[in-house]
Design a protein around this nucleic acid. Structure first.
Lengths: 340, 340
DNA sequence: CCTGGAAACGTAACCGATAACGATTGCAGT
DNA sequence: ACTGCAATCGTTATCGGTTACGTTTCCAGG
């Protein structure tokens, strides 16, 4: 029972096959310079002992590991979507994926852990990383691609056309006759949040509607952050006739608060979200929202990272993916189309 | 520009601080035997150079790494739930989490990759692993905990009380007056699938209703697998008045097929699922289902693994979590309570 | 029979860190 | 001043592989 759990290493294989570890390594990696007979012996020893090369030892010695990393700051349902896209892009590409999450991730937020993990991984384990986290530029040895980067970031990144998406959403509301349109913003540090707010302002300006700062609530993309903001907006004596939330998660909370306060949607209040998460299609009423494909974001990020790693990159360092408005049942003309 | 991307290693720090790497290591790990002055020098050098220890090198030399692994065979929304639970349990525990996914994961299914990855990781990188995948027992050097294990598995595992859950679900249907109850089973290899089928059979037997094998469809927990099975069941001349699907994903597909074929739910057909995924609460009609907390499953698995790793385990090697029936709008008494 | 060179394989340095061990230093006790 | 014991720090072997380089084997050509 002593050696039951001993790991089988390359030298075990070498001993069993009667060769040196160098030869085993050559066989494992398919290098030239081993006779057919020896290859067979080594192969059989590997089979017999159930040997697998250690990812760690290999990546320490080698420069390329064919492993890509992903560092995410939380695991919402959209993270799963991103993951699916990433994995689709990596499918049969020879690259494996390793996702690193730290234990302090939940609850309290120790700033800077992304950088720590990134350097720890990029040191040797991974050939490159995808980061999806609301923090800034990273110093690394290996390439990094950011999904939904921070404002002013210079790292290669993939992002949706948030400006156009938000503009379209607000134009939709304006087209229905709304003039007092509330806005619940996302996490300030992210470029996406900024662009969505910019789209909101631009659409209003173009339509000649002045922007009322008191109709803007500052959330952080997190659903919970929207609840108090929605409450404030809807409990004013002159509530807006429509609210555009910078994320579906927050929009769903607006729906919740509206129901709670006795607003009928879309009768008394129109609501538009952003993201088009699966839940949005299933609520009552269905949420009108701006579709951005998290899957696609992940897919493109992985594709980009692959090219960066293999050194065959020539496309622009920021990919912008289109968005589209999905009109469901949460939007309708306001009861009185006249201004108050 | 030559050395721009060179990683800063421990010997760089040592050189800068004018000490040996051993001393740097001692400072980094807070070991005893370094004078305050030296500690300060080393700290400052680390700061200056932005040094981070290499996860790979550390884990190669050390036996304990304080990193736990997770290997999943796909990333559905429930995987995200499990992850949340795992991370909650690991929060502030000193353990980090690394998730390993291989590139062949999507689409074609290369059997046995879990074992490969597991040994590659458990070699040195991780202190233990959580596996959530429909494959069998694993040989590893470090502890493994399975979520929803395969049938007859001996690995420590966490699982819901699928038997009781399924029994309750079918009893609910029987209580409403249903006698012809279809069943769509899950992936055969999993213990959970087997228990749910067992619950279905047990409830029928107890009620004195004979089990009709032609009313049982064999799916694999994957939503898509249910569509043709539901079609077969509902297009018979004598369709069942109720269908119990072994997962919510499959149950939702049953609803889809029912709508397509002109069955009203719950008028013409009652449907019950299993899992209580978020989508089930949002569909029209809301899905009656058996609640199992994936979050809890992940949480308990992580707790168990932690104890196994630290060697303080004394609880049973299989944790069974309770389930509960959530009655929504997809179930009602059959139109004719009489048997055909 | 001897030489040359390619093929096959072993030796050992190395990747970046850790830890057992040995060496040095400082200082109290006698 | 001398011994003895901590405290401090460097040396070195090691983790499990990879690879540059050196060595041996073998066979064809002269």
């Amino acid at each position: 029972m002593i050696e039951v759990n001993a790991p089988v290493t390359m030298s075990d294989v070498a001993r069993a096959a009667g060769v040196s570890t160098a030869t085993v390594s050559r066989v494992v990696n398919g290098h030239y310079g081993v006779s057919a007979r020896t290859v067979a012996q080594v192969r059989s020893a590997i089979e017999q002992l159930g040997y697998e090369s250690s990812l760690v030892a290999t990546s320490l010695r080698r420069s390329r590991t064919n492993v890509l990393g992903l560092v995410a700051h939380s695991f919402q349902s959209y993270t799963a979507e991103v993951l699916k896209g990433v994995m689709k892009a990596l499918s049969r590409s020879g690259f494996d994926l390793i996702i690193y999450a730290n234990s302090d991730l939940y609850g309290s937020y120790s700033e800077g852990w992304e950088q720590r993990h990134l350097t720890r991984l990029s040191g040797t384990l991974t050939d490159g990383c995808i980061v999806v986290t609301p923090w800034g530029d990273f110093r690394t040895r290996t390439p990094v691609v950011a999904i939904d980067p921070v404002r002013g970031s210079t790292t290669p990144s993939v992002i949706s056309d948030n400006l156009a998406g938000a503009t379209t959403a607000v134009e939709h509301l304006l087209g229905l006759g709304h003039r007092r349109i509330g806005f619940i913003a996302g996490r300030d540090s992210l470029a996406s949040a900024w662009s969505r707010e910019e789209g909101y302002r631009a659409a209003l300006s173009t339509a000649g509607v002045p922007v009322d700062p008191t109709l803007i609530g500052r959330g952080d993309f997190n659903p919970e952050s929207a609840t108090p903001l929605a409450r404030v907006l809807l409990q004013r004596p002159d509530p807006p006739s429509a609210i555009f939330a910078a994320s579906d998660g927050m929009a769903l909370k607006v729906l919740e608060v509206a129901r709670e306060l006795g607003f009928s949607v879309p009768g008394d209040l129109s609501v538009v979200g952003f993201d088009n998460i699966p839940e949005s299609a299933l609520t009552q009423p269905g949420l009108t929202t701006v579709d951005q494909s998290m899957y696609q974001l992940g897919y493109e990020a992985a594709r980009m990272l692959k090219s960066l790693v293999t050194g065959e990159w020539d496309e622009p360092s920021q990919i912008v993916l289109p968005t589209s408005l999905v009109v469901r049942d949460s939007t309708a003309p306001p009861k009185s189309a006249a201004r108050p």
